[in-house]
Write a protein that binds this DNA or RNA. Structure first.
Length: 565
DNA sequence: CCGGGGGCCT
DNA sequence: AGGCCCC
């Protein structure tokens, strides 16, 4: 009866995907003084990246310094092991672009790329468009203030258009959306440029196509991929590895499946090969513990389909980590010094990224919690930092190590194997000091990281440390000034004042369960690590009796030096 | 002369 | 905790 309902037939073919407008920006420094000179950013013995002048000489990313110097003797090298300056720039660009977003869907990818879902802005402006006076159009950047915006000529797409041809069949709005998107992209690129940076941009209906389109006219132009024709011809000639999501493992698996090991696989090769189907890919890539649905996902990517959303802007990072590589640290003093160094960097990063910029209006600092001045530890700085509050407090600290492999063993070991890591609850006392962190570094290294290192590398004769990584993660909601909110903490306070408590242990659920747990912990002694061999009958929390996995804090006792061999 | 991050998934 | 992915 309703089988051939013309109404449903008219609506059916349209995917929601087609209505989106996604921008992908790729930013780089437009260093005026060095623009004409070949510049490379160095990390240890490797070239992390380089500018386009250097690339013209054949210099590539991740190339060895020696080879790069051979190809381009005049190459200027800048040290990029400390990413702080790059983070700074990245943050400013990101904030600029985010300030134009209406829906907060602004996603960073690395330090130099940003996705924007501007579907809502485009939809708003599509209704405003006067088709009888296209050349004098006004792009409105604010719902509240019609004056905020810019003039543009809506007769043409701004910037480059991929596959520019006669195909102007039935424009159902999709073309207009992308046209508007191209003008918005151009405006935003000018804003970025006024900050001193050049950028490329891709404009398309999903993240995959936007990113790939932006590659077409780097580094200083934009490319719109109209959705009026199929994305297949656009994708076909691209090397398979260009597809974001298809990494080295996937490439390797596919090459063995297709038995075309020699030639560089293109999207066309993979998509048209008879052995390739969503199921075959799933079987191939999901072998053991792989991501379920990955086969279909990759298969859809090969066809230009990507339903993934631009993730809303995240105020707080999921994790913060600092790492450094070494040519074989073997003695404890070396390791200790290295840990002190990276821990200092980590705490500085935490202060920059996790501590609120603006002082809180009420400078009330922990009225009752700190009332009895602790006699044991003189580290109390009465809420230093002028009342700044933590936007988030990490709950977990992780140390990762990798042994050093001399060059003679490089062919014998898999890169990235040999990494060992272990995470534990992060001692809360590190949130006390908000300005000077030297003593915290000491306590963290001596009380937590060094013991952790010993559990990861028990045998001093095998100490050949090639990498150290310290990471804080598992961020909790913002901590209020004052703390002492939870019963556990209150009990801790009480018993501490009376001087009864000898040891207190923090279990995971205590640290996790309390949204408002400031932890106080302002006057504990440095932490001590307790390894219990059988994980079943381990330490028990003296306050609530719950089982403690691994971590304990001495309140009044002393932590002892670790044995050094 | 083999970096220094970050994400999400299991 | 580790894998694979991104830059």
């Amino acid at each position: 009866m309703d089988k051939e309902n013309p109404d449903s037939k008219r609506k059916a073919p349209r995917r929601k995907d087609d209505d989106r407008v996604i921008l992908h920006f790729c930013v780089e420094n437009s260093n005026p003084s060095l623009k004409t000179l070949p510049l490379g950013i160095k990390q240890k013995s490797i070239l992390a990246t380089c500018n386009y002048v250097a690339r013209r000489h054949g210099v590539k990313k991740l190339m060895g310094i020696q080879e790069a110097k051979r190809l381009c003797p005049d190459l200027i090298l800048a040290d990029g092991e400390d990413l702080s300056p790059f983070r700074d720039v990245s943050k400013r660009i990101y904030s600029l672009l985010k300030s134009y977003s209406w829906n907060g869907r602004v996603e960073r990818l690395g330090l130099d790329e940003v996705f924007l879902d501007v579907t809502d802005i485009i939809a708003y402006n599509l209704e405003l468009l006067n088709h009888h006076n296209l050349e004098n159009s006004w792009f409105c950047l604010s719902r509240e203030d019609p004056e905020k915006g810019f003039e543009f000529d809506a007769r043409e797409v701004k910037g480059c258009v991929y596959g520019e041809d006669e195909s102007q069949q039935g424009d159902d709005g999709s073309k207009w959306r992308l046209l508007l998107g191209s003008h918005l992209a151009f405006y935003l690129r000018q804003e970025v440029e006024s900050m001193g940076y050049t950028s490329a941009c891709g404009i398309a209906t999903n993240k995959l196509l936007a990113k790939l389109a932006g590659d077409k006219n780097k580094p200083r132009n934009q490319t719109t991929l109209l959705s009026s024709h199929s994305p297949i011809p656009f994708l076909n000639p691209l090397p398979l590895a260009k597809i974001p999501g298809v990494g080295s493992k996937t490439i390797h698996a596919l090459k063995t499946l297709l038995q075309t090991e020699s030639t560089e696989l293109t999207v066309h090769d993979a998509r048209t090969h008879p052995a390739v189907s969503p199921f075959a890919l799933e079987r191939l890539l999901c072998g053991s513990g792989g991501e379920k649905g990955i086969g279909q996902k990759i298969w859809l990517l090969l066809h230009g389909i990507d339903g993934s959303e631009v993730k809303p802007a995240r105020d707080i990072p999921r994790q913060i980590s600092i790492e450094d590589t070494y040519r074989g640290l073997t003695t404890l003093p070396q390791i200790r010094a290295s840990l002190v160094q990276i821990t200092g960097s980590l705490l500085r990063r935490m202060h920059v990224d996790l501590l609120d910029d603006s002082p809180s209006p009420s400078p009330v600092t922990t009225p009752s919690a700190t009332s009895p001045p602790p006699t044991t530890v003189p580290t109390q700085k009465s809420g230093g930092g002028g009342g700044r509050r933590w936007m988030a407090q990490p709950k977990t600290l992780r140390l990762t190590t990798r042994p050093y492999f001399p060059p003679s063993e490089w062919d014998k070991v898999e890169y990235n194997t040999g990494r060992a890591s272990k995470s534990v609850p992060l001692p809360r006392f590190i949130f006390d000091l908000k300005e000077d962190s030297e003593e915290i570094v000491e306590r963290l290294v001596e009380g937590t990281l060094l013991p952790l290192f010993h559990t990861l590398n028990p045998d001093p004769k095998k100490w050949r440390v090639g990498l150290l990584n310290v990471c804080v993660t598992n961020m909790s909601g913002g901590g209020h000034e004052g703390g002492g909110g939870s019963d556990i903490v209150a009990a801790f306070q009480r018993q501490k004042e009376v001087g009864e408590i000898r040891a207190i242990a923090f279990a995971d659920d205590q640290l996790l369960g309390d949204d408002d747990d400031d932890g106080d912990g302002s006057s504990e002694e440095p932490a001590e690590w307790v390894e219990d061999e059988d994980e079943q009958d381990g330490v028990r929390c003296q306050l609530c009796g719950c089982a403690i996995p691994v971590f304990a804090v001495e309140a009044h006792g002393r932590w002892h030096e670790l044995e050094e061999d």
